[in-house]
Amino acid sequence: MTSTPRALFALVLALTLAGCGGNLGGGSGDAAAFPDGDPITVYVGQDPGGSTDLIARALAEQVSHDLGVAVVVENKPGANGALAARELAGKKPDGHTLMIFNGSLAYITPLAVAAGQAPDLADYDIVTGISQDDYVLVTTATSGLKTVDDLEDLGRTVTFGTTGVGTGSQLSQELLFAQAGIDATAVPFDGGSPTLTAVLGGQVDVGSIQLGEAVEQIEAGRLTPIVTFAQERVSYLPRTPTAIEAGYDVPVQQSRAVFAPKGTPSSVIGSLEKAFGSAFEAGTYRAFNRDNQLTPNEVDGKTLRTQWTQSLDTYRAVTREHRIDLGGEQ
């Protein structure tokens, strides 16, 4: 970080703190009565219909039931969610504006875009973690490729499709090929579905896709899973090794959490955490997780902040070590 954004950040922080100080005096009564009949808006930084949106809607329904107020999901797509994140940071910290935050925005995007273009975790309070989504490296069934070694044996530059710059899809493959010493070219596509199409059509050799999006074609036998980038074997793909098992240390996951603007009173965070906690317990929500191959990561805000901060540090270190530049000229 250069000195200018740092100064700017300090200023923003100071202003936020000042604003919150003013709130605390008369706000404690409000906080006790939260949500006091007023609706809650939940931002989603992606288009309707995507995984983040589906998760938001599945939770909103339950939380609304628990708190007895309307919980409205509002899609504000743009810049991978950075647009919605910026807007959230500027909202009144009263618990009535929240966001389903994508982990990649916090720990991968900063490696790919200019400083100041990615959100800073310090600008937010975290209500709770939600769940994790695994990436799987796939190839079209007709390619005959089955393992990472097969890719190495091709003896030529491997082309790999990514779901975009600064995504887990890109990071996972860049790390894998760097560690395996395979010469590979990244071909970025615009999201999961076009990447899937390119892999199916053999336009690229392999692609890394979120499990929920690939599972249908894997079951249909049209895609071959090579490795997953999960920490442990994925229960949905018991026969597919993780990259770690295959000998490469590249766990990359998409993680999601509930964020609030910095300075939200701790009692409000507490009420929200409780409401989300009971939403997580609902049978329909558990079934939703199963159907979408999502692994629960329902940790508290403090733990989540540690997880994501560590991820950013780890990724920053390994990309440096392997001289990977996610945003670099290709």
């Binding site: 810049a79 790919a112 875009v113 200019a114 273009q117 975009g164 710059v165 600064g166 970025p188 615009d190 996610l326 945003g327 670099g328 000229e329 290709q330």
Partner: peptide
């Protein structure tokens, strides 16, 4: 817009 290949502005 952001360059889809490099992330450059």
């Amino acid at each position: 817009g952001r360059d889809a290949f490099t992330g450059g502005e």
